[in-house]
Design a protein around this nucleic acid. Structure first.
Lengths: 220, 220
DNA sequence: CGTAGTAAAAATGGATCCATTCTGGCGGGA
DNA sequence: TCCCGCCAGAATGGATCCATTTTTACTACG
């Protein structure tokens, strides 16, 4: 290796972090195969921590491993993505409800700051990242690690299709998302459970409907 | 090794199957540490497929791995289990709704047969196993693998606490569960989405409330 | 010309060995 | 007496090497 320090951090976690970034950024596309020794050589590690990392990412919904057939990034068709969004609707509204009482004013301020940055950017990659940060931050008060892990898995699974969608209908989508975020933000600031649930489930439902209506997104 | 055939099946999957059974049956209790070489020696394999298996089970919610600290079976307190049951309420009603249109009469017959066996048994371990089979079978028509995996994870996480609960309040719980199962079964046979959702969410909610009300279950 | 069979190449799974990190018990000092 | 630090044993993480499976490309046959 010679560049990064093996001290202090587990090699498998470094590999996992690298692959996680590569998959979420779209560098590695859904359906494509991930060759262990290719990654190992690329990161200056042996194949073993790579296998370990691929298993870690499997628990996060970012890879799928089959015996003797290697690892792939899972790909979804319209029907499958539709279900994932219905899961998001139910899981994330629960997460927000449980998070709401524990959100501090610091969290609130950070949410507003994130939304300002979302409205300021014109870059799709930045938008996707900030949008993800925005929602996940709103769940940060949630006292259940299991629930947060589920939410993260769902976001991981949808990441690629959100990007494909934004690349098509960016300008229109931008405005809708921002309007819905503002409504949600104010409901959060008011600690209004009912409005939070209403706005969030509506936000996810409308995204789902629009997303599934674009066949060109699913050209794999 | 010398006893089991390494042919045809991956060693890591054999190890995973063994550990899965051991954890779900309560042989390995939540919170307890799982030593890699102990399992490896016990099953006549090296430590590598054991690590692999532990990672697989992590994706199923049956183990938790920490760097340099080994693997543990996750344990939950009352608040955490409460959240898991709220997730079950939302996720499983969705799974049943999506499964319902694809259930065949053969599935129905098998569900009735399972319920008959549930009512016939007096053994807690058998009851837990059949109850799990009953519910998971009702979701088998669900077209989404992600959703089924989520449901399975939730059942894995609750398994130990269901058992602890049944060991305490068995006779009372038995009758309630059976009554609720019969209502659910008939709703499934009628393909009645509304009643299915109502009976299932009620079933899970009442189980949650009773379960969380028993502090002795959480003595770890 | 297309397809099935086969063999070489590549990729994955597993075992053994070594390095690093955690754990637990002991002793010394405040 | 209690607490902190240190040392030995044990457990985990990683690297290299070998076996098995998959894949792919080539050849031969229909």
């Amino acid at each position: 290796m010679g560049d990064t320090a093996p001290r202090g951090e587990a090699a498998s976690e470094r590999v996992a972090a690298h692959l996680r970034q590569a998959i979420l950024s779209g560098e590695i596309r859904p359906g494509s195969r991930i060759r262990q020794e290719e990654i190992a050589e690329q990161l200056g590690a042996s194949r073993l921590p790579v296998r370990e990392a691929l298993r870690m990412l499997e628990a996060e919904g970012l890879t799928q491993l089959e015996v003797n057939k290697g690892a792939r990034v899972p790909a979804f068709d319209r029907a499958q993505l539709d279900v994932i969004y219905e899961m998001r609707e139910r899981i994330e509204t629960l997460a927000l409800r449980l998070s709401l009482p524990h959100l501090t004013s610091a969290h609130e301020a950070e949410l507003y700051r994130l939304q300002d940055r979302i409205e300021a950017t014109t870059d799709v990659a930045t938008f996707l990242d900030l949008d993800r940060q925005f929602h996940l931050l709103s769940y940060v008060g949630c006292p259940s690690g299991e629930l947060l892990a589920s939410v993260t898995r769902l976001w991981n699974s949808t990441q690629h299709y959100r990007r494909a969608f934004m690349l098509h209908k960016a300008e229109e989508r931008w405005m809708i998302v921002n309007a819905e975020h503002r409504l949600l933000l104010d409901a959060i600031a008011r600690r209004d459970e009912v409005d939070c649930e209403r706005f969030l489930s509506g936000h996810i439902r409308r995204t789902r409907i629009q997303l599934v209506d674009h066949p060109e997104i699913f050209d794999d």
